[in-house]
Amino acid sequence: MQNGFYAVTGAMVTQFNRLDQISNNLANLNTNGYKQQNHVIGDFMRIYQEKRDTLPLANQTKEAAAFLNRSINRVPHVVEEFKDFSMGPMESTGNPLDLALGDKDLFFAVETPGGIRLTRDGAFKLDEEGRMVTRDGYPVLSSGYFKSRQPIHLPAEAVNLKIDGSGRIEYMDQTALDTPVFVDRLMVVRVEDMQSLEAEGENLFTMEGGVRERDLAIVTQTSAVRQGMIEKSNVNPVRQMTELIETNRLVEMYQKAMNAQMDDLNSDAINKLASIRA
């Protein structure tokens, strides 16, 4: 195979992956709490240079790696995928069951059929049984869940619901409207290494091997919970559209280079090799 054709093919595959990533970000522009996904584009040469000093070569220089195919080394590819966990804008809704978190490394915990999962989407509601659940019906967990094994439950008589910055849930008793009644406290967890989180769909995150009790650092001393607020997606639509246009142009450029490799160069080589000169 021609080295130039290989390089162009590898570059096109990389840009297709980038298109998928950008399209996914734009599709989740209005998804509450969504975190933008990004790619780091590099080439094999750069990776080799970063690791060169650790390679078992007698002479750790560029000359020591002369056996490497330089054309292949320059093929761009996705070096790393990561999520941008910066805060999205806050939007006031006035709904007492809408909650946002003021720190980027904090998450709500919910119970799914696959186990405990984490989310930044605080658009909660009450189901028919009075449980606080996500829009997909997953129960929201309390800070004492691992002892009680019960989700947060609000009685039917609960009015004037109040959730403070620490996640403490209270309501006013209808028979004594000036007396707050404690219900429960939200489980708010802090994740130290957020890049270890894996997106699972439905705006949920898990960890390698699943989210286990020992993995969760439950936070009680905080003031980050915002009642009546929703964190929106942190996707910048202008930047993503700019990157989409740039990526499409790169694909077109690589397509032209591929055509040049397959048609022009091959045709020129065939014509020259087939010609008979006296």
Results as ranks from 00 to 15, higher is better:
E129D: 14
A64P: 02
I22N: 03
K62H: 05
T119S: 03
L26K: 06
E50D: 10
D173R: 11
S71E: 13
V181T: 11
G122I: 09
D193L: 12
K62T: 10
I22K: 08
V189D: 05
R135A: 15
V79P: 00
F146L: 12
A199H: 09
D263F: 02
D98C: 05
D268P: 08
V235W: 08
P96I: 08
E157I: 04
N28V: 09
P155I: 11
K147C: 00
D121N: 13
G94Y: 07
G228H: 00
R168P: 01
G114S: 15
I169F: 06
F146M: 13
V191W: 01
R117P: 04
G114P: 06
I72T: 03
K256P: 01
E91P: 00
V181C: 04
M262C: 01
S233Y: 06
I47S: 03
E252T: 13
D105G: 04
E50F: 01
V75W: 01
N236G: 07
Q49D: 14
E192A: 15
G33W: 12
P89D: 11
V110Q: 13
G4M: 09
P151G: 09
G88W: 05
A66H: 14
P155R: 09
V238A: 10
F205A: 02
F85P: 00
N69E: 06
N32W: 02
D53V: 03
L216P: 00
Q227R: 13
A100T: 00
D173F: 08
A66D: 12
A257T: 09
N234P: 08
D264G: 02
G115A: 09
E200Q: 15
A100V: 01
N236D: 15
L244A: 13
S233N: 04
D184K: 02
S223D: 05
V181I: 12
F16N: 04
T179F: 02
Q21N: 12
P113L: 05
E231T: 12
V75I: 15
K104C: 06
G122D: 06
A27I: 05
K232F: 02
A7T: 11
N73I: 01
I116P: 06
S92G: 00
D215Q: 11
M241S: 05
I116G: 09
D84A: 12
T61A: 00
D103A: 14
G209D: 03
S196W: 01
S92F: 10
G137C: 14
L186E: 02
L99K: 10
E111S: 12
